[in-house]
Each structure stands twice: as structure tokens, then as C-alpha cells.
Amino acid sequence: MNILQKIFSDHFEEMLYTLHPRQVVIENVDRMINCGDPSFGGAMYICPHCENMKFVPFRCKSRFCPSCGVKYSQARSTSMSFKLIHCVHRHCVFTIDDELRHFFLDDRSLLDCLFQAVRSVVLRMFHNINKSKNFVPGFICVLHTFGRPLEWIPHIHCLISEGGFSDDGSWRTVKHFNYTLLRKSFQTALLNLLESRLGPSFKKTKALIYRKDKNGFYVYAKPNLSDTDTVIKYISRYLGRPVIALKRIDSYDGEHVTFHYNRHEDNAYVKKTLPALDFMRLLIQHIPEKNFKMTRYYGLYSRHREIDKSLYKAIPKSKHQLLQSFTKWRSNIILSFGYDPLNCPKCKHEMLLVELYYDHHRVSLEKLYERTMAKAKCRSA
């Protein structure tokens, strides 16, 4: 077990009866605790040369898991890179007032309003450039609900192309972003959406926010991302990553957890010690609801957009297969640790998959194939 698995395993029952977690939390925590446990299945490999055998346990594939979450982040960032147009992109972050955070925690369906507000203001900003031609950018929104101290702080990371296609197919580069418009428009759009969802009871809070944030909500831009490699590396840091990396957890004595972070304001090193249950509460609040889309594509990157973007793709199709291989288990081990996990440790020949095990049950490849084909026939029928 890694240190996070140990913490949640020791206090799992206490979490159930004290924190009353959502069902999706229970499922993700249970999967994370048992990630890599051989009793839940795995794959058996054998060396055809010396007959040496090796068992590789299955992983949980939960984004809450620190190891599987990193793999998910790599896969999603690679998938995103295939959609990018060959142009400069700008990374903007849309934040909200502290007074609004609890609304999104109490009712997680309101998180959709954040996406809708960002979509409307970005499209409006580009539409104002030339209303007759209707220039549309490509932009990708990623929801983050946590900060470095693990507090609940929902905000949107948005990757926007510095330019857009018009209705007649012409491209226009846009270097100047009107941040005054973005701040005020985002504030207005979000507050109006929340009022429509929450009703008249929200009007008092809405008026308070307008008095408090006269210049709109804070919207700031990260450095421009000019080349594709920089874009992929940059977005992989933000896309679907686990709430906390294992290296940030310094110690656990059975009752208290100590972790560290660099404060966002001044990058100062901060070490914090919390009771295990409080630490767990901080983490599980960031587990999204099942099937909730944390990443959404708009404008030129949306599925229904009719314009032919194949001529403008940043990554040619010839490189797709190479990049996709980097998201696989074997390639990740080679890149991270410098050795091939399927090379026999004795004779260095490549090992072959011979059997799969699911929950203590041994399944030969022939039976697995027959079972898969039978299921496929049932679906088609």
C-alpha cells in the first residue's frame, strides 16, 4: 500500500459513519484502496525462452487514485492534443468570489453554470471583433475544484486559440484579449445563471457580489503557448490530475497526516498537519459526480462544428499512433523508469501474455475470447 491507501484503509469505516460520503465517493475510495491488489485480478506473463513467469495486478483506473489519476491525465492530454489547431493558444483562468463557493459545493449540478458562463463570454468577445463574419475560436474548458491547500475553490482553466475561423472559412489572428470585458461579462453571465437556477432567494447575494466586485470576477492569463509540445506539456499539468500527489504527503502516524504545498501568493513553503479524518474530508469533496464532464470542448473544437479542421491540425495523423503509445502501461514504465516491464529479468527476452485472472478466477485467453464474442452476439441480437 502507498501512504494514501493506508490512510483511507485505516479510517474507511470511520469515514462512512462520520462524514456520510456520497455513493460516488465510496466507490472511488474503495477502488483506490484496492488498486494493485493481486486478489482482485491481474495478468500472467511467461517468457517463451526460459519459462520464467510474472504476475501483473490490475489497476483501479480511478481518477482519485494518485497513480491511475496521473495515467488518466496523460491519456486525456494526449487525446486533447489531437484536436488542437496549429496556432498560438492562451491559457486563461476564470475564478469566482469566495461568497459563491458554497453554492457549488451544496449543489454540484450548478458547476454546469461555470462552463456555460465561460462559453458565452469567450464567444461574445470574438463575435465583437467582426459581427458580420462571426469569427469563432477553438477553446477547451477544464474544471478544477481544488487549490494547493486542498480547499474547495471551483474555477475554470480555459485554453483559447489566438484566432478564429469565420463563417466563410477565413482565419483571423487575435492578439488582444479584452480582459475588462471578460471579467465583467463572466460575472454577469454567472450571476444571472445562478439566479435562474436558485430563484429569488439568490438576489440578495447577487447584489452583495456586485457591490463587492465592482470590476468583475478575476480573470487572468498564463503565458502564451506557442508550439504544440509546450501546449501538451502545459495542459497535462491541469487536466484531470489527482487532488494531491504522493510526494506532497510527508508523514502519517495513524492519527494525523502532514502534507506540504507552496503558497500560490508568494510561493512560500507551507507544511500543514491535520487529523486523518479532516484530511480525508478535504480530498473526497473534490471527487466529481459520476459521468460529470470535467473537460468540455467549444467553438472550433466542438464535435458539431462543420468546418474542416484537418488541414490545420497541429499534430499530423502520422504521429497519433506514436503519441497514443505513450499513454499505455508498458510505454509509461519505459519512459518513467528506463526499463521494459515485459522483458524477462533472467534472459531479457520479451514475455508473452498467457492468462488473465478476475476476482480469484483464472481465465484463459481462449475462454476470454469466447466470452467476449458471446456478449457481442447478445448485444447485436
Score class of each variant (00 low, 15 high):
His176Arg: 11
Leu191Gln: 03
Lys317Thr: 15
Thr78Val: 15
Lys317Cys: 10
Leu110Gln: 03
Met294Leu: 10
Met32Lys: 04
Asp97Phe: 00
Tyr220Arg: 13
Glu27Lys: 15
Cys50Glu: 08
Ile334Pro: 03
His349Arg: 10
Asn134Trp: 10
Asp308Cys: 12
Glu350Ala: 15
Leu311His: 13
Met125Ile: 06
Leu123Val: 07
Asn134Leu: 12
Leu283Gln: 14
Val354Ala: 05
Leu123Thr: 08
Leu105Ser: 04
Leu191Met: 10
Ser120Trp: 04
Lys71Leu: 06
Tyr298Phe: 14
Arg379Ser: 06
Phe177Asp: 12
Asn28Ile: 00
Arg330Pro: 06
Arg119Lys: 14
His320Glu: 09
Gly299Thr: 11
Leu225Lys: 15
Asp359Thr: 00
Asp97His: 01
Ala189His: 07
His86Met: 04
Phe217Gln: 07
Ser380Lys: 08
Ile307Phe: 03
Thr18Val: 08
Val142Ala: 15
Lys203Tyr: 05
His320Tyr: 15
Leu356Met: 15
His157Gln: 11
Ser109Asn: 12
Tyr312Lys: 00
Leu311Cys: 09
Phe82Met: 13
Glu289Gln: 07
Lys293Gly: 01
Arg281Ala: 04
Lys293Arg: 14
Asp10Phe: 14
Ser325His: 01
Ala376Val: 05
Tyr301His: 02
Ile232Phe: 09
Leu368Lys: 05
Tyr179Ser: 02
